[in-house]
């Protein structure tokens, strides 16, 4: 085996004087689920968009499967095997659910014998096959979130970046997504998850990376991280026993 699937090395992103992301490093092994958490404004989204090629890092490097991908545009990352979802769902609204996923199958421009069948199989995996013929705009929010996952899966990623796929969902809908994500991991796809739903991220993740004020303040097993005084301070403030 070679090194980790994804390596983030000293990545920084400054917006003028603001250090949105400051010297963050972590690894992600293939088959691993890593959760990226932190209070609002911690820099999670900026880091996420840096890894997904939307934002260029001011400093630092990102490697995927041993090769440098720093600053590569999103479409090239997708072809290398990095899929992503958007926090605000971005479906192709005026075409069918199936066509959305076929676009995912064909997007990376690799050999496929039957894109339609392949797309249908992906829809079955996220339990949306019964909605295949519907216009994407007519789906409910939880269904749109699942379509977002299906479309990314259709590109056959080895790493899937998920940006708050559970935001705005009910507990029952979150459970559904969690089952789907567990299935995806079983197929050998690594996941990097940005999420605010603690219950979900604690039980799904193998490891957590915690950010606050642009810096990484903790990393490790969910239980260890949850007990870390620095993490508790970042979320609740220094004298949390006295806070109103």
């Amino acid at each position: 085996m070679s090194g980790p699937l994804l390596q983030v090395r000293g990545v920084s992103r400054w917006f003028g004087g603001l250090r949105a992301v400051d010297e963050v490093s972590f690894d992600l092994e293939s088959h691993e689920i890593v959760g990226l958490i932190g209070p609002n404004g911690a820099g999670k989204t900026t880091l996420f968009e840096t890894i997904s090629g939307v934002i260029h890092p001011t400093k630092g490097a990102v490697t995927f499967d041993g090769s440098d991908i720093t600053g590569h545009p999103p479409h090239r990352l997708a072809r290398l095997g990095i899929g992503r979802t958007f926090q605000i769902v971005q479906p192709f609204r005026d075409v069918s659910v199936l066509e959305n996923v076929i676009a995912g199958v064909l997007g990376p421009n690799r050999e496929t014998s039957d894109p339609r069948a392949e797309a249908m199989a992906v829809l079955t995996r996220v339990r949306l096959d019964h909605r295949a013929g519907l216009l994407a705009r007519n789906l409910s929010l939880p269904e749109k979130k699942r379509l977002e996952i299906a479309r990314a899966l259709a590109t056959r990623p080895r790493l899937l970046l998920l940006d708050e796929v559970m935001a705005g969902l009910t507990p029952a809908e979150i459970d559904e997504i969690m089952v789907i994500l567990a299935d995806i991991r079983r197929e050998g796809i690594a996941l990097l998850i940005v999420e605010h739903v603690m219950r979900a991220i604690m039980s799904l993740s193998d490891r957590l990376v915690v950010m606050a004020n642009g810096r990484k303040i903790a990393e490790g097993l969910p239980a260890t991280v949850a007990a870390d005084p620095a993490v508790i301070e970042a979320y609740l403030g220094r004298r949390h026993h006295g806070a109103a």
Partner: peptide
């Protein structure tokens, strides 16, 4: 339909 999504799919 959506350029950001298109790019994320390898287009």
């Amino acid at each position: 339909e959506n350029e950001r999504s298109a790019a994320a799919l390898g287009i």
